[in-house]
Amino acid sequence: MSNTWVLLRGLMREARHWGDWPARLQARYPHDRIICPDWPGCGQHYQQRSLLRIEEMAGYLQQTLIQQGASGPYRVVAISLGAMVACAWAQQRPADFIDCTLINPSLRGYSPPWQRLRLANWPRLLGLLGQSPAAREATILALTSQRAEPAVLAAWQAWAREAPVSRANVLRQLWAAARFRPAHQAPAVPLQIIQGLADQLVDPRCASVLAQAWGCPLRSHPTAGHDLPLDAPEWLLAQLAAAPA
């Protein structure tokens, strides 16, 4: 039986930032459908206003899937801000999920702000608002990946020129992420948490604390950063094969 995968990216990111990872996933599951939606304010929707609440993003996602003719339950892979949306969605509609993999999540109520975004990076993150799109992408890549390769940066900078995320939308997405507080109990879906122990953006303790609180499996990569699909693509695929049922 074929499944539908939903891949959710994070703050200021669009579907193209998955790189070749969806193609790798498709090769592993050739009969499945893979959907990589863009958030309002990003990618093909870069001219729209970003939503101010994670719960609104979850509702937007559900409508997007309906418009694309998709039907659940789904296998969901979500990173960073996308993981917050996945949590809100799973709490609203757990029957929509076959399973859910959260990559480097950080949630209010479980971790302090200086771990959710490493304190040393706050000046660099605030500086993003004053940078050109090209300089902004260089900063983001340095913060999120241990594989800051020139070809990757060139692609990210090209996408930023084609679909620039406005300063206002950056602030709106940051506001949504900062305000979101999930329910105290874990979503009633099969869940696993993946972390990169070399994450320079989010303290890995955020994922560890959440996995312990929710009693779900925690899988750790010793050298990957925040963008695990970029840093350890094949390893991440292997973890999906071991997702709890």
Results as ranks from 00 to 15, higher is better:
residue 172 R to E: 10
residue 55 E to Q: 14
residue 125 L to W: 06
residue 62 Q to E: 15
residue 229 P to M: 03
residue 3 N to I: 06
residue 44 Q to M: 11
residue 178 A to M: 13
residue 205 R to N: 10
residue 159 W to T: 09
residue 137 E to V: 08
residue 195 Q to D: 13
residue 16 R to K: 12
residue 68 Q to L: 15
residue 54 I to L: 06
residue 167 R to C: 15
residue 188 A to W: 04
residue 131 Q to M: 14
residue 100 C to V: 08
residue 193 I to W: 04
residue 223 T to L: 11
residue 131 Q to P: 07
residue 63 Q to M: 14
residue 120 A to R: 13
residue 110 Y to E: 07
residue 98 I to L: 14
residue 95 A to S: 15
residue 36 C to I: 12
residue 83 A to N: 01
residue 83 A to E: 01
residue 53 R to C: 10
residue 205 R to L: 12
residue 198 A to K: 10
residue 98 I to D: 11
residue 216 C to W: 02
residue 29 Y to D: 01
residue 90 A to D: 04
residue 111 S to I: 07
residue 21 W to S: 00
residue 194 I to V: 14
residue 7 L to A: 08
residue 27 A to C: 05
residue 187 P to M: 04
residue 25 L to W: 02
residue 208 S to K: 09
residue 74 Y to N: 04
residue 191 L to A: 02
residue 74 Y to W: 07
residue 129 L to W: 06
residue 232 A to P: 10
residue 180 F to N: 02
residue 14 E to H: 15
residue 155 A to Y: 05
residue 84 M to T: 05
residue 96 D to C: 09
residue 15 A to Q: 13
residue 29 Y to A: 09
residue 158 A to G: 08
residue 190 P to Q: 07
residue 26 Q to W: 00
residue 159 W to Y: 14
residue 202 V to D: 01
residue 123 P to N: 06
residue 78 A to Q: 07
residue 14 E to D: 15
residue 245 A to W: 11
residue 45 H to P: 09
residue 48 Q to S: 13
residue 104 N to G: 11
residue 88 A to N: 07
residue 83 A to T: 01
residue 180 F to S: 00
residue 195 Q to Y: 09
residue 99 D to Y: 05
residue 169 N to D: 14
residue 49 R to A: 15
residue 36 C to H: 08
residue 200 Q to G: 11
residue 226 H to V: 05
residue 192 Q to C: 11
residue 43 G to D: 06
residue 221 H to K: 00
residue 100 C to W: 01
residue 4 T to P: 09
residue 156 W to L: 12
residue 78 A to L: 00
residue 108 R to S: 14
residue 47 Q to I: 03
residue 38 D to R: 08
residue 92 Q to K: 12
residue 78 A to T: 02
residue 137 E to I: 09
residue 221 H to V: 03
residue 26 Q to E: 06
residue 196 G to H: 03
residue 162 E to G: 09
residue 204 P to H: 07
residue 205 R to C: 12
residue 205 R to T: 11
residue 97 F to D: 00
residue 245 A to I: 06
residue 1 M to C: 02
residue 83 A to S: 13
residue 35 I to R: 09
residue 195 Q to K: 12
residue 241 A to H: 10
residue 32 D to N: 08
residue 241 A to V: 05
residue 147 R to Y: 04
residue 53 R to P: 08
residue 211 A to T: 02
residue 236 L to R: 02
residue 241 A to F: 01
residue 130 G to N: 09
residue 46 Y to L: 05
residue 21 W to M: 01
residue 18 W to D: 02
residue 119 L to Q: 11
residue 228 L to Q: 01
residue 218 L to D: 02
residue 53 R to V: 09
residue 213 A to E: 03
residue 154 A to K: 10
residue 66 I to S: 13
residue 131 Q to F: 01
residue 216 C to V: 15
residue 47 Q to L: 14
residue 135 A to N: 08
residue 93 R to Y: 13
residue 200 Q to R: 15
residue 112 P to N: 07
residue 85 V to K: 03
residue 226 H to F: 07
residue 157 Q to F: 06
residue 238 A to N: 08
residue 137 E to M: 13
